[in-house]
Design a protein around this nucleic acid. Structure first.
Lengths: 141, 141
DNA sequence: ATTACAAACGCAATTGTGTTGCATTTACAA
DNA sequence: TTGTAAATGCAACACAATTGCGTTTGTAAT
């Protein structure tokens, strides 16, 4: 499962960011993760390379521009994943063991319908959908 | 717009909780709110009646049993609303002014489909869906 | 190459959010 | 009335996230 690493310097510059070593490394790290990760995980993994504050600031600004996506697994803190280079998708989270499975997003028709029905909004630009349940392994018990 | 207050004592007992004054007051307060509120809002509003810790513990346990619902508006902290006595629904949140509009939940077919397709989960017990966009007022600007 | 400057950075301190431990009180069923 | 588990309040703690500010650095224009 080897993917060719994209040119993150270029991606950053195109997004209006400076291609600093820290940000490049952050994107590389996120690219290598299978599932959304927490800030504290990144903090430990990148400790010698990026200061905590820089990490928060980088994540925040990249969430705004859509390079990175923030998801809520109901764990009391945010998880982050790379948004670019992959299809919009959602997650199923096990409420017992925190296992995460990706789910293709097929809600576009529903989103359009919501947009039409809404009285206070003309345009829905984004949505979050997370599913929760017990995974097969945790159901056994 | 006067609603008859439900019997929260009874609701609590049915849910397996003790009907303590604090919890009754908490449910009454949530019942009176139009939109999901933050813990710090509740903390201020109920300061003299419930300690912060009790508030957190009450909310947590009632989220587990489904009396109260926790939602994520991407504001960096949880919002809570009463789940019982109303239909399952979702929200559209303005990314500029934080205006919230309720949306009926019509995703059940989609949920079933996700459940069927999933390799690692047999049963999806719950889901969160929040929509984001600019409200009509903020679009003008 | 050099320079100029906004963007990004690191550190320290601080705020905010949520939790733990423990002794005390209370709702409620027996 | 009483026994008991549930719930409470307080203090202290742990973790998550932010602010202020002086310094460094990537990049575009010279």
């Amino acid at each position: 499962m080897t993917k060719t690493a994209p040119n993150f310097e270029e991606i950053l510059r195109e997004g209006g960011y400076k291609a600093t070593p820290g940000r490049v490394l952050l994107l590389k790290t996120l690219f290598g993760e299978e599932k959304p990760v927490t800030v504290s995980y990144l903090e430990k993994k990148l400790k010698s390379a990026i200061d905590k504050v820089t990490l928060y600031r980088a994540l925040d600004s990249m969430v705004v521009s859509g390079v990175v996506r923030e998801v809520d697994f109901r764990h009391g803190h945010a998880h982050y994943e790379l948004q670019i280079l992959r299809k919009h998708h959602h997650h199923i989270v096990c409420t017992n063991c925190a296992l995460v499975e990706d789910v293709d997003c097929n809600t576009e028709p529903f989103v359009k319908q919501v947009e039409k029905k809404s009285k206070k909004f003309d345009l829905i630009s984004d949505h979050s959908t997370e599913f929760f349940g017990l995974c097969k392994n945790c159901t056994k018990v």
